[in-house]
């Protein structure tokens, strides 16, 4: 049938439209996000145009009029990268084990482990931090001297925090591909491990990146672990065993101590930086998962 003969009258049905309250609820939800972003952007604008006391310098000495947040940016990045470097290989190894363990005696362990990982995603960070302060910090003090409150300690715990999230993403990405290969792959005499190593992992770069980006985003934004474990010295750390202050911890400290005007500028600048990076991470993740049903039934 030629295109011009296609029927044109839409058979529209008014009853199938959403009611007023549903639309209002959805509008509220979306407006909440817009308000959040707008508020933080507007609050941070003065920080970018203030003369003299710019937050973009390398020194934080409020009583000398220096309100720089760059050391905190560096510390945030270092912390997140170290946590990722520790956590990602660990998560990958765990997932590979979980997908390829073939010993029948351990099948119950695999099931229990899945629930264990699920539970780990919900351990309150403040509890994790509290335990680490009294267990990990003394150990670090013994090993490296100093106070024990350092970037390394915080990174170790953050890697534990982001581990279960990365495990879940990796597992959901790799499991389906491996299972699709399994019947005939196993018939060829290959083990599940060999199949995963040879056929699945090389094709799964997207999933690996996705897990790493998600873990990185979580690590950037966490507040309590660095606040309670990293020592909070507002300077650029020269090694991982030194004290450091992340952007998130900086925000918690500044609001707690109400230093005043120019300090607030650095607070809002820090907030905007964190929000900006987290939105960036979200957008990258959405790009990485194009097949996700987006608004499709």
């Amino acid at each position: 049938m030629p295109k011009s003969d296609l029927p044109t009258q839409p058979s529209h049905d008014k009853d199938s439209e959403a009611g007023f309250w549903l639309k209002l609820a959805s509008l509220l939800a979306v407006l909440g996000v817009v308000a959040l972003c707008a508020m933080i952007v507007v609050a941070a604008i003065p920080a970018f145009f203030s003369q003299g006391q710019t937050p973009f310098e390398w020194s934080w000495q409020p009583y000398q009029g220096h309100f720089g947040v760059l050391p905190m940016c560096a510390a945030t990045l270092l912390l997140a990268l170290l946590a990722l470097a520790l956590g990602f290989p660990w998560a990958l190894a765990i997932v590979i084990w979980h997908l390829t363990e073939e010993a029948p005696a351990l099948s119950w362990a695999k099931k229990a482990f899945a629930l264990f990982i699920r539970l780990l995603t919900t351990v309150p960070t403040v509890v994790l931090s509290f335990a680490a302060v009294f267990l990990l910090t003394p150990l670090l003090r013994l090993a490296f001297g100093g106070t024990g409150f350092c970037l390394l300690g915080a990174s170790l715990m953050v890697s534990l925090l982001i581990l279960p999230t990365m495990v879940l993403v990796l597992e959901s990405g790799l499991a389906a591909r491996l299972d699709a290969l399994c019947p005939h792959g196993l018939a060829l005499g290959l083990s599940r491990y060999q199949l995963l190593r040879q056929c699945v992992l090389p094709q799964s770069r997207r999933t690996l990146i996705q897990a790493a980006v998600l873990g990185f985003g979580r690590a950037l934004g966490d507040t309590l672990l660095p606040l309670m474990l990293a020592g909070n010295a507002p300077k650029l750390p020269s090694s991982f065993t030194e004290s450091a202050r992340t952007l998130s911890a900086h925000m918690a400290l500044v609001t707690a101590n109400e230093v005043g005007g120019a300090a607030y500028n650095s607070l809002f600048a820090a907030g905007l930086l964190l929000l900006g990076t987290s939105i960036g991470v979200t957008l990258i993740l959405r790009k990485l998962a194009p097949n996700r049903a987006r608004g499709k039934k």
């Binding site: 959805s26 939800a29 979306v30 909440g32 996000v33 817009v34 308000a35 959040l36 972003c37 508020m39 933080i40 985003g217 950037l220 934004g221 966490d222 507040t223 998130s248 925000m251 918690a252 609001t255 607070l267 809002f268 907030g271 964190l274 929000l275 987290s278 939105i279 991470v281 979200t282 993740l285 959405r286 987006r294 608004g295």
Partner: peptide, 20 residues
């Protein structure tokens, strides 16, 4: 639009919500 805003919200660190 809704999915995008919920994704952004889910990725936002909680300290930023506090700052809001």
């Amino acid at each position: 639009i809704i999915n995008l805003s919920m994704d952004i919200l889910a990725g936002t660190p909680s300290i930023v919500m506090g700052l809001f």
